[in-house]
Each structure stands twice: as C-alpha cells, then as structure tokens.
C-alpha cells in the first residue's frame, strides 16, 4: 500500500513516537478559509473487539455524538464522542452498509441506512431499532430483479419525503413519501445532463430556504448536479479530477469526500469544499484549487494523507471526520479547523 505509513499510523493509537505525533500535528492542510490540523488516531480502536471494514459514512446526532457506519457485521454502527471515545456499538444485519443519513422527526433522531447487499433501505432509531424497510422498487417498473438495485445514499426532505440514489445499480433516483410510497423516478444511467455514471450521493440543499433543491453526485464524471425536488434537472457544477462521493451541507458550504483524483488512480483521494457560489475554495490533501476563465483546473492529490475518503462529517464545531473506503480497515481521520 502506497501510503503505508499513514495507514499504519491510523491503526495504532498511542504507538507512534512522540516526536512523530508532534510533527504531523503541526501540518495544516486545506486552503483559504477552510484549513485543518490532522488527527490520524481519532477513533482508533482495538480491531479484535471493534473491527471495521470499509468506513462508509458518518453523521453527528442531536446529542453531538459522531455515528460511523461500516460494513463489518460485528458492529455496523459505532458511536463516538467528538473526542473519539467509543460510546456505543450496534448492528449485525447490514452486510452491505453504505449510506447513512440522519433525520430528526418529531424531536427524535432516525437513521436511514442503504445496504448494497440487501438491496434495500432501512430506517432505524438512533439505537438500532428497525422502523421501516424500503425494499427493491419493483413498483417503479425500472427493475427486473433486486440485484439490479444497489442503493448508495438517501436524503430526507423537510416534509419527510425520502430520496434514494441507486448509485451502484441502474442509477435512478427514487422519490418516496415519508410512508415509503414511491412518488417519482428520475435520472438513470446515461450520457445526458439529467443522467448519471455513478449517482453515488444525494442531499437536500436548503441553504436558500425558499428554494430547496437536490444535489446529486455524478461521480465518474466528476460532476455535482442540481435538480428540483420533483426531479427536474437544473444545472451542473464541474469539478474536473474530483471523484466526489456525497455532498454534505454545513452552514454555507458543501463538503465532499473525494475518493480518487486526477485520472482516478488508487489512493489519490482528498476532501473538496465548495462555497455558496459553487466554487471549490479548499481541498485538504489536494492541490490549490485554481480557476481560469471560470473553469476549475483539473484537481489531483498533493499529499498522501487520505487514501480513499468516502464521506466527510462536519460537526457543530466545524471540525471534519473523514471515513474511508478500502483503506486498510482504518478508523476515521479527524481534521480540526484552524
């Protein structure tokens, strides 16, 4: 593994030499208003007791706790304090645990988990009690069999409507009401602007409360696409060289784990942060973002800090937690805003 030093250090909380610890903690990554110090050992656990495979996604709950979803069925959900102390684990029934979205409904936190292997979306309470399952959407008429449907992400609208991105399947976006009744299907695999090549992530962009809309990643094409809530294509944000996983809205910014960069080589990830004008303003681990004639110059990795970032969680103190796919079964990396 190319960045073996980094991956290994992610395993061994407290095993690094002190000078090493001090040295890398001085490194500041990112650009402009969004710069960070790095904690490689945040959340590192004894893998014999609390193993992870891919760390797919993370969210912060209403109590301020950090919730991590992994596809290891010994403990699919690990709940940490912000400082990285393990508080609780649950979940053994999600072999393809991939997408994790938190929604507050009637004052209570609920989680929406997409499972690649089960070909369904599972809604649970914050402590793991299943309250609803959205099965493979046969009713849509788009699918012949469950294995064509490999959901990767969900987004929940203000009214409780559920959007599911079938990012590893036929690339449709499925729009349900809060009771799980299918209302609309749009997107799909294809070449057009309203079509996708890996519709991996989706979120509700409610930064303008009068005009909420959807942001959906077109990962293999390095694009972030904006749609209306009823599935009409609006516009595209080009992020050449950035293979973006899912958009996460925090305050006025969009954060996107970028799993590969450049020509898409292994181990080339970084983090992308957009401002309100959809401009890439900071790329922790990547090169300095530069625009020429309004177009972003192709991005690529500058420092081998991340291997394959798959999601970024932004906490209430504006610090980041980066969950990684296929990165030596390492635990998340925390970035402290400076």
């Amino acid at each position: 593994m190319r960045n073996g030093a980094v991956v290994l250090s992610g395993f061994g909380a407290g095993l690094n030499a002190l000078d090493s610890w001090a040295r890398y903690k001085d490194v500041v990554i990112g650009h402009n208003s969004h710069r960070y110090k790095i904690d490689l050992n945040w959340g590192a656990l004894n893998a014999q007791f609390y193993p992870v495979k891919d760390c797919h996604e993370m969210v912060q709950d209403s109590k301020g706790r950090i919730v991590l979803l992994t596809n290891h069925t010994k403990n699919n959900v690990l709940i940490y304090s912000r400082s990285g102390q393990l508080l609780e684990v649950w979940g053994t029934e999600f072999p393809g645990a991939h997408g994790l979205t938190l929604n507050v409904e009637g004052g209570e936190d609920f989680l929406y988990i997409t499972d690649n292997n089960r070909h369904e979306v599972i809604k649970t309470t914050i402590d793991g009690k299943v309250v609803m399952v959205l099965p493979f959407p046969q009713v849509s008429g788009k699918y012949d069999s469950p294995d064509q449907y490999i959901p990767t992400e969900t987004a929940i609208a203000e009214n409780g409507d559920i959007y599911v991105a079938d990012g590893y399947g036929l690339q449709y976006l499925l729009h349900y009401n809060a009771r799980g009744e299918l209302l609309n299907v749009f997107g799909g695999k294809g070449q057009g602007e309203a079509s996708f090549d890996n519709a991996h992530g989706i979120c509700i962009d409610d930064r303008d409360p009068e005009n909420p809309c959807l942001l959906i990643t077109d990962r293999m094409r390095n694009k972030l696409k904006r749609f209306t809530l009823d599935g009409k294509y609006l516009s595209t944000i080009n992020l050449p060289g950035a293979f973006i996983c899912r958009p996460v809205i925090h305050r006025k910014n969009v954060y996107l784990a970028t799993i590969w960069s450049g020509e898409g080589g292994e181990g080339t990830g970084f983090i992308s942060i957009l401002d309100e004008q959809d401009q890439l303003i900071s790329a922790p681990g990547g090169i300095t973002p530069r625009y020429e004639d309004g177009e972003l110059k192709p991005m690529y990795q500058a420092l081998k800090i991340f291997h394959h970032p798959h999601d970024v969680c932004v906490d209430d103190e504006d610090n980041l937690y980066v969950a990684q796919w296929n990165s030596g079964q390492t635990y998340p990396i925390k970035l402290y805003r400076v």
Binding site: N3, A5, S20, A22, K304
Partner: peptide, 11 residues
C-alpha cells in the same frame, strides 16, 4: 525525524 506524510507523485 518524525516526518510521516508523503508527497503525491508529480503529474
């Protein structure tokens, strides 16, 4: 000593 981050390869 203690340097652990590696530069990415040049494009």
């Amino acid at each position: 000593s203690g340097m652990i981050f590696q530069l990415a390869s040049p494009q």
